[in-house]
Write a protein that binds this DNA or RNA. Structure first.
Lengths: 151, 151
DNA sequence: TAATCCTTTGGCATTATCTGCCAAGGATAC
DNA sequence: GTATCCTTGGCAGATAATGCCAAAGGATTA
């Protein structure tokens, strides 16, 4: 992972469908070595994949919520159950384990408030062992980039 | 935005560099109408762009932090200054406006704890007008998908 | 300093893909 | 029933991907 690799990565974070020719030009390489570097980054797992960035509202999911969850008990069984159940819920886009007052932070996308209530009552609480849930609705987004800072 | 469009979107959220031929096959269209739908989704803004999903650790940013910030005052001037300064900080990947106890939640990626301390002291506090900062380090990630649920 | 090795690069040719154009099919309204 | 509109599918020229091989650049060792 040298500076050229990071340049390739940042370029593809900003323009994920750029052709290899354009990418090569942007990072000042010819197409062949550029493509070889790209394949190595993909095979090594540094680049996990590619994704379209979609307007959630246009898709039909106007409500985005950060949900912080604390469990009652932290034995292996309860933790495993919570995590495996959460992974299967399609509305949960992200679930991170955090330091601090909460155990987990979920990123959830839903169509309306009824769907959110349904999500909390019938998906999350049904898992059991939940000590507390803290909901923060996203009112607006000041910044959202997928491009890492230069090093 | 019909069911076919959403199918195209979900497919490209999972495999952003898939060729139009493969995409067409996956959604049961021939390449021509598939490409036309795709271009319309892009031009309408439903698809904002494409991005490589990169392993932050492999890139050299092993520490991910959610930072919740509350401002002392909420007059237009202070709010505008905070938001415009935050947009210019490369380490800040996301900044959302939240309901609840905090005003903002930032997603920050840094190389080490020193860089995080420097970020808080010299980037965030220097903005001025900060009432409180609450830091939650990401210990692990149970789930992270860019694919929206079916509707 | 020179020789050697190893890594990375660039060009070429083949194969695959993109994409604009036009005709055909299917649904809808009158 | 028919006219109209929207969407689809196929074709062809242009563009891009990718495997192979020779050459250049950089580091290490003698």
């Amino acid at each position: 992972m040298d500076s050229k690799d990071r340049q390739i990565i940042r370029t593809l974070q900003a323009h994920g469908r750029m052709t290899n020719q354009d990418l090569a030009e942007r990072v000042s390489l010819s197409p062949s070595p550029c493509l070889r570097r790209l394949r190595l980054l993909e095979e090594s797992g540094a680049i996990r994949g590619y994704s379209a960035e979609v307007d959630a509202k246009a898709y039909g999911l106007p409500i985005t919520v950060f949900v912080r969850v604390r469990l009652e008990r932290h034995n292996e069984e309860d933790v495993k159950r919570f995590e495996s159940r959460v992974m299967d819920i399609d509305e949960v886009l992200e679930c991170h384990v955090l330091t601090g007052a909460s155990d987990y932070q979920l990123l959830v996308a839903v169509a309306d408030l009824d769907a959110y209530e349904d999500f909390i009552r019938n998906r999350i609480h049904r898992i059991g062992g939940i000590a507390s849930i803290d909901t923060s609705f996203v009112y607006g987004t000041v910044k959202k980039t997928s491009v890492f800072p230069m090093l």
